[in-house]
Simulated scan of single mutants.
Amino acid sequence: MKACEKPAPDESRLEAAAHWHARLQETDLPIETWDEFVLWREVPENAAAFAQLEDALRMLDVSEMAGRSEHDAGDGARQAGRRFALNPKGVLLAASAFVALSSTLLIATGRQGHDLESYETALGEIRTIDLADGSHVTLNTDSRIDIDFTARRRNITLTEGQAYFDVAHDADRPFIVAAAESRTTALGTQFEVYAQPGQVSVTLVEGSVVVSEIKAATGIRGVLNALGQGDDSDEGHILAPGERATLVGDAPVRVEPADIETALKWREGRIEFRDMPLTEAVAELNRYSRRQIRIGDADIARERISGVFPVGDQEKFLSTLGLYLPIEVVEVGDTFIVDAKD
């Protein structure tokens, strides 16, 4: 699927972003306000406007501008304007300056429209994407990534599915992959991230990465986390090649050895099972096809299986399975029902 390019935000969106930025400075931010902001930011154009405003505030030294805008409030207010919490007039002044200088700022911050992209794969599709920095990403079936490269960071969000990253080395711009409540940081390395419902796993092939849990945060820190700009994560777990980190809910991060050759076989369009319960093997195969396999017999479901199988070819898998187990297969619509032979 073609990359989706996101245009630079218009003035009205930037003004809305400035108002939100000002509201999020409140010390005791009501949860309702935060929920409203999250809903507003779900619109991609709004998210882009807020992100570019953040860059503009940093580049324009908005704290000085905020202090000058409240000149009549005295030295105390001017000093307050220099702190992280910005007053609304200062934010809006910065937004106006940003609109006037948008072309220059977009180049300086590295947030040109073509750098904000999304890629996704259809069911059964596996594809490799060449990124602007020289890195390569291979997406597995039914997966999606959002890419936001700036002058300081290479941010990628794996919104669903599985991706293998071959990262070009750049010591000045860390390569950061967010998936659910996890963040993986690398400079130049090869690793895989697999986001499943309620679980994220990171497998390191080469080099080194730091896998962190993103802590919940409110106010502007929560916003920065959502943008990949914050630091509300734990100190992280440094993985060595051949290790996998698994994050499940609030449980501690589990680090264990990984079978790299087996884990990455999907990049070749094949899946390898080694003494895997049949139910788990079927669940994995079903990821690649609309024609689903369902095990109808409890005893058959408890069997274990080993072997290498092509993805998306359910008939071949079932034919091979029938050579080793006493099964019969009934096809009902797009479903293959597997039962024990009478």
Rank of each mutant, 00 (worst) to 15 (best):
E213R: 15
E213G: 13
E213D: 11
I214L: 07
I214Y: 03
A216G: 10
A217N: 12
G219P: 09
I220R: 13
R221I: 10
N225Y: 06
N225P: 02
L227A: 04
G228K: 02
G228T: 04
Q229E: 15
Q229C: 10
G230H: 07
D232R: 12
S233E: 13
S233W: 14
S233C: 14
S233N: 12
D234I: 03
D234T: 02
E235C: 10
I238R: 11
I238H: 09
L239K: 00
P241I: 02
T246K: 05
L247W: 04
D250H: 15
I260P: 08
I260D: 09
E261S: 15
T262R: 15
W266K: 00
W266V: 00
E268M: 07
I271Q: 03
R274I: 12
M276K: 07
L278Y: 00
V282Y: 02
N286S: 03
S289K: 02
R294W: 08
G296P: 01
D299L: 13
I300K: 00
A301L: 02
E303K: 11
E303W: 09
I305K: 05
I305D: 09
V308W: 06
V308C: 08
F309L: 03
Q314L: 05
K316Y: 14
L318A: 08
S319Q: 14
S319E: 14
S319A: 15
S319K: 14
L321G: 05
G322W: 05
L323G: 14
L325V: 10
L325K: 09
P326K: 04
V330Q: 12
E331D: 10
